[in-house]
Write a protein that binds this DNA or RNA. Structure first.
Length: 486
RNA sequence: GGCACGUUGGAGAAGAGGUUUAACUCACCAGCCUUUCACGCUGGCAUUCAUGGGUUCGAAUCCCAUACGUGUCACCA
């Protein structure tokens, strides 16, 4: 199944739902990668045939996501490649024409069954398909009812016997008994096509050579193959991707959805993730580079190493731990200026004016795995936290509240006219420790806890002193001294 | 329920009959570094590849069955 020497053409064909599901983004990425790894073309097509689920502005979300992630398309809305329009609702007439052609040649038929009647065909669990009630209607009756303006759909006439198979580039040979397939609806009563029909017509007309999509389509693809055959069209290569799963609170695994947390690209961005980190992470969900040595990829490196045969068959669970790791790597790779650019607005918004936010940002740079963690990490700077005597007791540095009080008492006068700069402050405290006989660690601990009132902080004692500024830091120490005395 | 697909550690995975006493990454644990945390570094973390049979001198790798999981059976995509 690798005989072709014509250029690869792939497409990303999302429904405008208003958000970009992370599984869809991954599909887009792979389709794009496949096109870019050859001399191929990548098409964006909007599948908006469901008139009841139209969401205003949804197309923009899709285009924005592709722009932000760098997945550029050669053809699509606004980029004419000679196969447009690229929005299905603007192609309505095309589908009708092809559907009627199928009826004329006996591969499809008109169906006048009402939704109510169809409803009675399903069992309690909603399972059960169409009973082919209208499949053998006489041409006279069809003509009469059509003329009478009866609502109708057009259904695909699936062979009653035999089986249909196709070759999937990932899963291999897939065979389905024809008796297990439904006479699916091709054209709905409102005149719009279903996905089942529209995508086949469009993929053919647009010259798509490789259909890349989630494996939820694995078992419906034989029906599409039959459609290609009926038209006498060459079937495309199918590349079905393993599903992206999520693990719920109950520990159960299922198709990644809202209940697993943030699953749209926008959600992830809002949660403080960097676009390229997200892309890098999902690239590795269901695919593994041949030379599996490095884990950080640029888009170009991805293109260079991408291949269909390295796509896995088994579903992958979306793991925030690893996404976090990727994100922290990408954050660390940011220059100090780039990081500051992203962190500063947040810091300035929550920190009092006397705080040295630039220095704070520098401290945060290697300690943060998402930008969204920042507020919680600097909460003790934004406002003074309540006193907690237990914090002053530290096993490793052998401190107790009493000892800390002694240390702070000794250190306080030196601080009054110290040079307020990290290195100088550090040297000062270190010297004080040496001179006084206290452990350096103990001195640092006492000072840090006194100004932070928190066990874990983004920086050591003197770094925090510097960030807080002399006035605020001294006030906090004085306050600590007072509280310790009580 | 029918059908389809899947099953290597907590997660992503390499592996495609012998040189695997199962690579690598995340997570986790320990140690080092150290003014806490983090970063960084070092080490640990599956005698076992869902289970049971079979083929073979030899199986995670081939075959069969069972179990479990997921997907799908819409005038949604």
């Amino acid at each position: 199944m690798t005989e072709h020497n014509k250029a690869i053409v792939t497409r990303f064909a999302p429904s405008p739902t208003g958000y970009m599901h992370i599984g869809n983004l991954r599909t887009a990425l792979y389709a794009w990668l496949l096109a870019r790894s050859g001399q191929g073309r990548f098409i964006l097509r909007i599948e908006d045939t469901d008139q009841e689920r139209l969401v205003p502005g949804a197309v923009q979300v899709i285009m924005d996501t592709l722009r932000i992630t760098g997945l550029d398309y050669d053809e699509g809305p606004g980029v004419d490649g000679g196969h447009g329009p690229y929005v299905q609702s603007e192609r309505k007439e095309i589908y009708r024409e092809y559907a009627e052609k199928l009826v004329a040649q006996g591969d499809a038929y008109y169906c006048f069954c009402t939704p109510e009647r169809l409803q009675t065909l399903h069992d309690a669990a909603g399972i059960g398909g169409y009973d082919r009630h209208c499949r053998e209607l006489s041409t006279d009756e069809v003509a009469r009812r059509l003329a009478a303006g009866e609502p109708h759909v057009i259904r695909q006439k699936i062979p009653l016997e035999g089986e249909t198979s196709y070759y999937d580039e990932v899963f291999g040979q897939i065979t389905l008994a024809n008796s297990d397939m439904q006479d699916q609806i091709l054209l709905k009563a409102d005149g719009f096509p279903t996905y089942n029909f529209a995508h086949v017509v469009d993929d053919h007309l647009m010259g798509v050579t490789h259909v890349v999509r989630g494996s939820e389509y694995l078992t419906s693809t034989p029906k599409y193959a039959l459609l290609y055959d009926a038209f006498g069209w060459e079937r495309p290569h199918y590349v079905h991707l393993p599903l992206l799963m999520g693990r719920g609170e109950d520990g159960k695994v299922s198709k990644l959805s809202k209940r697993h947390g943030a699953v749209s690209f926008q959600d992830l961005l809002a949660a403080g993730y960097l676009p390229q980190a997200v892309l890098n992470y999902i690239a590795l969900l269901g695919w593994c580079p041949k030379d599996n040595n490095q884990e950080i990829f640029s888009l170009d490196e991805l293109i260079a190493s991408f291949s269909i045969d390295a796509i896995s068959k088994s579903p992958a669970i979306f793991d925030y731990d690893k996404l976090n790791w990727f994100n922290s790597e990408y954050i660390k790779a940011l220059s100090p200026a780039e990081f500051a650019e992203r962190a500063l607005p947040q810091l300035k918004a929550i920190c009092p004016p006397y705080v040295d936010t630039a220095k704070l940002a520098a401290l945060l740079h290697t300690r943060v795995s998402t930008l969204a963690e920042i507020p919680a990490m600097v909460d003790f700077i934004a406002a003074r936290l309540p006193f907690d005597a237990a914090l002053y007791a530290n096993k490793k540095n052998k401190t107790t509240p009493e000892l800390c009080a002694e240390i702070l008492t000794g250190v306080r006068p030196l601080l009054s006219d110290a040079v307020w700069q990290n290195d100088a402050l550090f040297a000062l405290l270190k010297d004080y420790a040496a001179a006084s006989g206290y452990k350096a660690g103990a001195v640092m601990w006492a000072v840090r806890v006194a100004v932070a009132r928190k066990a874990i902080t983004p920086g050591g004692a003197t770094e925090l002193l510097e960030v807080l500024g002399r006035e605020e830091a001294l006030e906090r120490i004085d306050q600590a001294l007072q509280e310790l005395a009580e």
